[in-house]
Design a protein around this nucleic acid. Sequence first.
DNA 1: CAATTGATGTAATAACATTACATTTGAACA
DNA 2: TGTTCAAATGTAATGTTATTACATCAATTG
Lengths: 141, 141
Amino acid sequence: MNAPTITPALTKNQSLVFDVLTRAEAPVSAYTILDRLRDHGFRAPLQVYRALDKLTEFGMIHRLESLNAFVACAHLQSECCGGTGHCHGTVAFAICESCGNVSEFHDDEVDHRLEDWAKGRGFKPAKTTIEIRGLCQNCVV
Amino acid sequence: MNAPTITPALTKNQSLVFDVLTRAEAPVSAYTILDRLRDHGFRAPLQVYRALDKLTEFGMIHRLESLNAFVACAHLQSECCGGTGHCHGTVAFAICESCGNVSEFHDDEVDHRLEDWAKGRGFKPAKTTIEIRGLCQNCVV
DNA sequence: CAATTGATGTAATAACATTACATTTGAACA
DNA sequence: TGTTCAAATGTAATGTTATTACATCAATTG
C-alpha cells in the first residue's frame, strides 16, 4: 500500500471534509459534502474534490465506485490487522441499498485469488474495487 | 443469475447499441455510443440508456462502475462454464488503464469467499462488482 | 377494435467531475 | 529578514454522466 503509515496533519478544508464523512452514517456524494460545508465557506465543487483526493491518497477515506460517493475508512484506528492502522491489501465493501450502511472488510484469500489471476496473465494491478450491493441484515426483514 | 438463458430478440435500438459495444475494443461511455449512432437516428441520451438497461438485464453487456462505461459480455457464446452461455456467479474485470483492454473472468473461490462473508453477516447480495485496474501484459513493458 | 404493455422520441434538468487561471499560505533557507 | 518554492486555496466556466417528465407509437391480446 502507498498510504502513509501515520495520519498526516490535515489542512482546514481536508479536516472539514473528513469530519463530514466521519459523522455520516452512509456514503456521501461530493456535492452533498459541498452543501454541508457552505456555512464553513465552501463555494465550489473543486474545494471538495481536492480534499477528497488528498484524503484518499492518505488512505483515510474510500470512494465507492458504484455509488459515486465517499466514506471514511472504517479501519483507521481499529484493532484489526494487528492494530497498526491500515489494513493491507484490497478493501471490500458491502453496501446496503436500503439503509445505506456500509461494511468494510477484507479477505486475504480473495486478494490472493485475484493476485494469482493477475500474475498468471502478466497483469499489474494498480487498484482493485470490490463492492457488494444488497440488503443488510436489518433491512432484509 | 437472473439473465435469460437464451438471447432474446432485440429491438432496433438495442441492436444498434449492442453492435457498437461488440465492435469496440475498449469500454465505451453512453455518450460516445450516442455519438456513434447519430447517423442511425439517435438524438438523445435516453435512447442509449434505455437500450443499455435492457442489454444489461439480458446479461449481454456489463457496466464497468469504475469507468462509467460499458462493454459487451465476453462470455456470451464462449466455451467456458460448459458452453451453455452465461457464466454463473460474479464476473470480474481486469481493466488496462493504458490500452483500455478489458478481460472478463470469473473465480468460484472468490465468489465463495464473498458469499460466505455475506452469509455470516446476514447480508443479502444483489449485485457484486469486482474490477481490477492496472496495466495489461502488453502495456507493462 | 379497445385496452394494455413495452418501446420510442424529445426536451429539460439533475448529478458528478474537471480544466484553467489567479491568489494565498507557509516552510525552507540564503 | 526576505526570497523562493511548493502546496493549498478561491472562483468561474465547462465538460461528462444520468434521470425525470411527458407525449407518441407499435405490437399483442382478449
